[in-house]
Every structure is written in C-alpha cells, then in structure tokens.
Design a protein around this nucleic acid. Structure first.
Length: 150
DNA sequence: GCCAACGTTGGC
DNA sequence: GCCAACGTTGGC
C-alpha cells in the first residue's frame, strides 16, 4: 500500500495505530481492497515521492472494505461528484500499524533483489496505490528489513 | 521539473 | 465502441 509520506507516513500510522485507507480513486486498486484483502492480511507500507522512495514498514488489515464517504464530501480533496449516498462508489479497508523499519528499503535496493524481479510494485508504469504481493515477496522484504538492522 | 506510462473523459 | 485529449502518478 502506497502513500506519500508528506500526506500520510508510516510514522502517522504508528501514532494513529489504525487508519482508514480512504482516497483511493482507482477501480483496480479499489477492487483489490474489496475482493482480495481480508482481516489479518499482511501489507507493506510504501512511501512514494519520498527521499528515498521505498518500503518503510508493515501493517495488517484489521477491517474489511467499507464505503469511503470522503467521496460524498464536497470539501474533501477526495470528493467525487459521481458518488452518491446510495452508491458511494469507493470503498477502503482499515489497516493497523505493525512495525516501522529503522531504515527505508529503497526502491533501488528492491530492484537489486532477484527474488523480487517479478514484483508488481517494480514493474514499469505501474501506478496503483494498492497492489497485490506474494507471500514469498513479503517474506523476502521482511528478511531484508531484519538484515538492515545489523 | 521532466516525462513515460498509464487511466479517464467525452464527442462522435 | 473508438480514440484523441487530458489529467495523474511517481521515479528520476
């Protein structure tokens, strides 16, 4: 799950404990949250447009997708004129903080890993803010994070 | 700031 | 349903 740290960072999640992942306005990303993300699922927290960009921590899904009502709020930056009360159009899961890495695993470091070669996050032109990862990819990145503490 | 690689919109 | 124009994302 990607976020720009100047809008919502892993530190913000650490402080808040949980966060409703609102503001996703892409159908593919939304559908991942609705169809594929279940309570207890593990997630990587990724900082985009950051210095450096990369994985900065771990989270877990603690609430399944429910309507994202910021789409109905005209004052919200996430307002969507096509959303209605009957059909809010957008949904989002809630995630719980698990861990903040001491050091960001930068996208350059991730690209160097053969085990992550096929990771959807690293594919050119991918712009989805919510992306699926495999168990192997997740575990590999957790291992990398542990190594970087030594 | 640049720009490639998308997704979305809307006229037809 | 096509597709040009436009807007956005995000690494660099």
């Amino acid at each position: 799950m990607k976020s720009e740290p100047n809008s919502y960072s892993i530190k913000d999640l650490q402080r808040d404990k949980t966060a409703f992942w609102d503001g996703v306005r892409n159908y593919q990303a939304r559908n991942f949250m609705i169809n594929d993300m279940k309570i207890g699922d593990k997630a990587l927290f990724y900082h985009s447009n950051a210095k450096p960009s990369g994985v900065t921590g771990l989270a877990t899904v603690c609430k399944k997708a429910e309507p994202d009502l910021t789409a109905l709020d005209k004052k919200s930056i996430y307002y969507d004129p096509k959303a209605t009360k009957k059909n809010p159009r957008w949904k989002a899961v809630t995630v719980r903080f698990v861990q903040a890495f001491e050091k960001t695993l930068s996208i350059q470091e991730l690209r160097q890993e053969k085990a992550l070669r096929n990771m959807s996050l690293l594919k050119t032109g991918q712009r989805l803010s919510v992306l699926p990862i495999t168990k192997a990819e997740y575990e590999h990145i957790v291992k990398m994070a542990k190594k970087s503490y030594v």
